[in-house]
């Protein structure tokens, strides 16, 4: 995606609201006026652990409106449980916004958004901006079970058409959301997706089969989140404009890709440029 001109900073925020739309899934609202104003669709922030001793946690910025942002998270380990149980009024330091978001202009006017689980968190801001400029938005939203499909109504209220899939068949299409996407055989001008890696790989295959270009927001463990440590990489075609500027390959190097940092060159990449 084109590099965004952003000014990341450390933000001291305050927990303003919290809800648990499904067991284990939390949406934490934060009073963060400067961050809310600076965030572009698809960007993320690093959350400094309130108790220290652990690496900061990267989270996609879910909502960003007025003076408030929110983060959607699954409480799976000590870091996310700590965040999910912060009391209202607690301070939380974040640094961001980070990364290059989606290139919404390149997606056209008939856009499929594909979300797996809390990957949904990176797609609300794109949906809002696409709808605002008059695009038609179709949300394909998959989760393990009906109870884990959260906030689908929020997207519907904004004006997106929502199609859901559950692994266990408790709601909507029974099976993977990417199979649902393929089966609809609808025409899209572009696809934007966020979710676990196996789902994103499937989106890439479906997009190629449908002849549509897809932007994927990759999920990965980050250490620094700012491009300093080169710990979160993905294979990217040497020809991609997003590829880190590496001149001539080493003698004997035959691989046609480079390792791009997901946190810095991404987290959003064109599916057809990935070598993974």
């Amino acid at each position: 995606m084109p590099a965004l001109e952003t000014s990341p900073a450390i933000h001291r925020t305050v927990v303003s609201d919290r809800r648990e739309p499904a067991p284990g899934i939390s949406v934490v609202g934060l009073y963060a006026p400067r961050l809310a104003g600076a965030t572009r669709p698809g960007q993320f922030a690093m959350v400094v652990p309130p108790g220290g001793e652990r690496a900061a946690t990267a989270l996609g910025i879910y909502e960003a409106q007025g003076d408030r942002i929110s983060l959607m998270l699954v409480a799976v380990g000590p870091r996310t449980r700590e965040l999910a149980t912060l009391p209202l009024g607690a301070q939380l330091d974040l640094f961001g916004p980070l990364g290059n978001g989606f290139d919404l202009a390149a997606l056209g006017d008939e856009v499929a958004l594909v979300a797996g689980g809390v990957g949904l968190a990176s797609l609300l801001l794109p949906a809002r901006e696409l709808l605002a400029r008059g695009a038609r938005v179709y949300l394909f939203y998959g989760a393990r079970t009906a109870g884990a499909l959260v906030d689908a109504d929020l997207f519907a209220e904004l004006g997106a058409r929502v199609y859901v899939a559950t692994d266990d068949g408790t709601l909507g299409w029974a099976g993977y959301v990417t199979d649902l996407l393929r089966e609809t055989a609808m025409h899209f001008s572009g696809i934007a997706a966020c979710g676990p890696s196996p789902m994103l790989r499937a989106v890439a295959r479906v997009a190629a089969d449908l002849g549509v270009r897809a932007q994927l927001s990759l999920e990965e463990t980050f250490a620094c989140g700012v491009g300093a440590c080169w710990g979160c990489v993905v294979g990217l075609s040497r020809e991609s404009a997003q590829a880190p500027r590496f001149p001539a390959p080493a003698p004997g190097e035959t691989r046609d890709y480079v390792h791009a940092r997901i946190c810095k060159e991404g987290p959003v990449f064109w599916a057809h440029e990935l070598r993974w």
Binding site: E53, R54, A55, E220, T221, F222, A223, C229, W230, G231, C232, V233, V234, R245, F246, P247, A248, P249, A250, E253, R255, V258, H259
Partner: peptide, 30 residues
Amino acid sequence: PRLGNAPPRLVATPSGLLNAIGLQNPGIDA
């Protein structure tokens, strides 16, 4: 130049971080 190691390159462990980046760098000339 070095392409570095294949991902995953990081694993968070109790109170620690395990990494294997593999000296990815553009080489001294560049």
